[in-house]
Design a binder for these strands. Structure first.
Lengths: 341, 341
DNA sequence: ACGGTATTGACATACGTATGTCACGTCAAC
DNA sequence: GTTGACGTGACATACGTATGTCAATACCGT
C-alpha cells in the first residue's frame, strides 16, 4: 500500500497540518519538525498523488504554444500536431492555445508575448528565433512564475526550462553520413539549399553536414549554400546555373523550409542526372516527393512526439516532477519511402 | 467548467444513483431514464474524470509482461525498457511484473501463463511466438476479463487487443531500400543471415527485403538466408564459405538476433572487402559496432517507446478509453552512427 | 514566571467519482 | 387489498490531497 500524508503524520508524530505545511512549503515550521517529516517521507517512500492533489486543487494547466504565422508547411504540421496533442490532453486538465506570431518582426513577437495574461499562465512552448527582445520577453514570463520550453528551435541564451527538438548539428551530420553512404563509390559535388540562412537551424545543420563530409567522405564536395528567399524564380534560375557550373553534381541537400520550391525547380531533372536528394522535415510536399521517388530520404523529427513532449514537460515542470528523459528524447529519424508513416 | 455527474443528474432530471447505474451499467434502469441520461451526457459533453474515478475506486492496474528467458541482447533491452517504463508508471497506480518464459517450449509457456492469478490481472503484454497452445492460453486469459497485447512479435491469430511493434515486412523493405541506395551503382550479392528462421519476424523481414530488391534493385542479388543456430563456429565457417563462393559479395544483412555472432565472424573482413553491413535491433553489440564502423546502419524499433506504449494501451483498454493512435504508432527507425541516441 | 509570538493540531469542507444502504413509490400478479 | 419485485432517490462514506479556521501549546527573551 502506498503511504499517504496520514501515514507520514503518524510516522513523524506530527499532525496532518504540519505535514501539509512542510510538503507545500507554507508558513514556518520548526526545523526539527520539518526534518522529522522529511525523514518520514524518505523512510516510507512517500510520493504525492498528483492526481488526487490536482483534484483537490481543481487544478487546470494553462499552456500557450507560440508558433510562427504565415504559410509554411512544416509549421502547419507542427500546429496540427499540437492541436492533436492538446485534444488528447484536454481530458487531463490542460487548456492549450496556439498563438501565432509574426517571427520576422521581433517587436511584434514581443508585443504579442507581453499581451499574454500572465496571472493564469502556467507554461509556454515557443517556436521562435532567438532575439534579444524575445530573450527579455521570456525572462518576463518566467518572472511571473510560468515555465518556458523551446520548441524545435533551441533558445540557448534564454534560460528556458527545456528544449524539445533535435540537435541540428547532429541532424546535419546524419544527412551528411547518409549522402556519404549513398555515394560511397562516387566522386562529385553536392548542392546545398535552404530558404534562408538566418535561421540558426540551417547554420547548425550545415556545420554538421560539412564536418562529416570533410572527415569521412573526401570524395564529395559540398557547394556553398544557396539561399533562395522563398522565391521560386530565383531557385529555378540558380539551380540551372549550378547544374551548368557543376557537371559532376551528384546530390542535393535541402536543409529545410523551401523543399517545395527546390523540388519544383528540380522536377524532371533528378532522374536524368541520377541525382540523390535528401531533405529535412516531413510535410505533405516531402511526403509526396518520397512516394514519387523525387526525394530519396528525409531527415525528420516526429512532430507528434515533439508536441506531446512539450506539453508533458510543461506539466512536469508545473508539478515540480522529474521529467522522464528517455521519453522526452526527440530522435533524429531517417525516412525512406519504405518506412514512411 | 467541465460537467460532472451532478450536472448530468440535474440535466436528465434523475438522481445521482440513476446516473451512476447507467454510467456503470449496473442494475436495471427503466429504458426511458437510461435514454435521458445518455442524452444529457451527449448534450453536456460529459467525460468521466478517470483520475477521480480511479481515486474513488482505489484502482490499481495489475499488468504482466511476458518475455522470453535466456540470454538475448535484444530481449534484455526490452526488459530494461519495461522496467524503466514500469518505474515511471508505478506512481500512476500500475503494478507491472516481468514474467520470463522458455519460449522454445510451448507447453512451458502455457503452464506459466495458466499459473497467473487471473482474478486480479488487468492486462498482459506478451512477446512470445504464436503456437496453438499460446493461442488457447490467450483466449483463457481474455475470458477472465484481462486484456492482452502482443509485444514486438504479432500474434495475428490470437485475437489480441492490440499489437505494439513494427511491421516486419516494412522493416525488411526498409533494409532493402537502404542497401539498394548504399549500393546504387554497384552490382553484386548480399549475404542474409539470421539466428533462426522459425521466428515469423525473420520470415517477414526476408519477404520485404526480397520484394524491394527484386522490384527496385536488380543489380543486387540476395543470397539464400543463412541460419546459424546461435553457434559461433557455424557462422564463422559458413561465412568463410560464402565469401569464397561469392567474390562479388557487397553487403551483409543481419535480420535480427545473432548480430553478435555475425559480427564476430566478420571482424576485420568488412573493411578489406568494402562490405556494407545492415542489421536489426539496437543492443549494446550493434551500438558498439555502429560506433566502430563495423555496421553501417541498424533498423530499429525504439524499445522504450514499445514498452511505454504497451502499458499505455493496456491502461486505455482497462479504462475503456480510446487509444491515441498517433502516439502508439511504433516507427521503423534507421540508425547511423550520427543519429545514434 | 510572564507576556508575546511562533508553531501546532483538531476539525471541517471540498474536488469528482464510486458504492452501499434504506425507504419510498409503482405496478403487476394473486 | 395484499404481496413482492422492481425502479428510484436521498443520503452517507470513501479515495488522497488541499486548505481554511481557531484554539491550544511550545518556546522565546526578559
Amino acid at each position: 500500500m502506498k503511504p499517504t500524508v496520514h501515514d507520514i503524520a503518524r510516522e513523524a508524530g506530527v499532525s496532518l497540518s504540519t505535514v501539509d505545511r512542510v510538503l507545500n512549503g507554507r508558513s514556518d515550521v520548526r526545523p526539527k519538525n520539518a526534518e522529522r517529516v522529511k525523514e518520514a517521507v524518505r523512510k516510507l517512500g512517500y510520493v504525492r498523488d498528483t492526481n488526487a492533489a490536482n483534484l483537490a486543487k481543481k487544478r487546470r494547466y494553462n499552456f500557450k504554444v507560440v508558433l510562427p504565422e504565415g504559410a509554411n508547411h512544416f509549421v502547419e504540421t507542427v500546429a496540427e500536431a499540437v492541436r492533436d496533442a492538446a485534444n488528447a490532453e484536454v481530458t487531463d486538465r490542460a487548456d492549450v492555445e496556439i498563438v501565432h506570431v509574426n517571427t520576422s518582426d521581433p517587436h511584434a513577437v514581443v508585443k504579442r508575448l507581453k499581451a499574454l495574461d500572465l496571472s493564469e499562465l502556467d507554461g509556454v512552448a515557443m517556436m521562435v528565433p532567438e532575439t534579444p527582445q524575445v530573450r527579455d520577453a521570456i525572462a518576463h514570463i518566467k518572472s511571473a512564475g510560468a515555465y518556458v520550453v523551446a520548441l524545435v528551435s533551441d533558445l540557448p541564451n534564454s534560460r528556458c526550462d527545456h528544449f524539445v527538438g533535435i540537435d541540428n548539428f547532429s541532424a546535419g551530420q546524419t544527412a551528411g553520413a547518409l549522402l556519404g553512404r549513398f555515394l560511397r563509390r562516387e566522386t562529385g559535388s553536392i548542392l546545398v539549399t535552404t530558404s534562408s540562412m538566418v535561421a540558426r537551424d540551417s547554420i547548425e545543420r550545415r556545420h554538421g553536414f560539412d564536418e562529416i563530409l570533410l572527415r569521412n567522405h573526401p570524395n564529395l564536395k559540398a557547394l556553398p549554400t544557396i539561399e533562395f528567399y522563398d522565391d521560386p524564380d530565383r531557385i529555378s534560375e540558380t539551380l540551372s546555373h549550378a547544374l551548368a557550373a557543376h557537371p559532376d553534381l551528384k546530390a542535393v541537400y535541402s536543409m529545410g523550409s523551401g523543399n517545395a520550391a527546390m523540388l519544383g525547380a528540380l522536377t524532371g531533372r533528378t532522374a536524368a542526372l541520377g541525382l540523390v536528394v535528401v531533405a529535412h522535415d516531413l510535410t505533405p510536399v516531402t511526403r509526396q516527393a518520397l512516394m514519387n521517388g523525387e526525394i530519396d530520404a528525409v531527415i525528420v523529427q516526429n512532430v507528434g512526439h515533439v508536441a506531446r513532449s512539450a506539453l508533458r514537460v510543461l506539466r512536469a515542470k508545473c508539478d515540480n516532477a522529474t521529467i522522464y528523459e528517455a521519453q522526452e528524447q526527440i530522435r533524429i529519424e531517417i525516412i525512406l519511402r519504405e518506412n514512411l508513416y
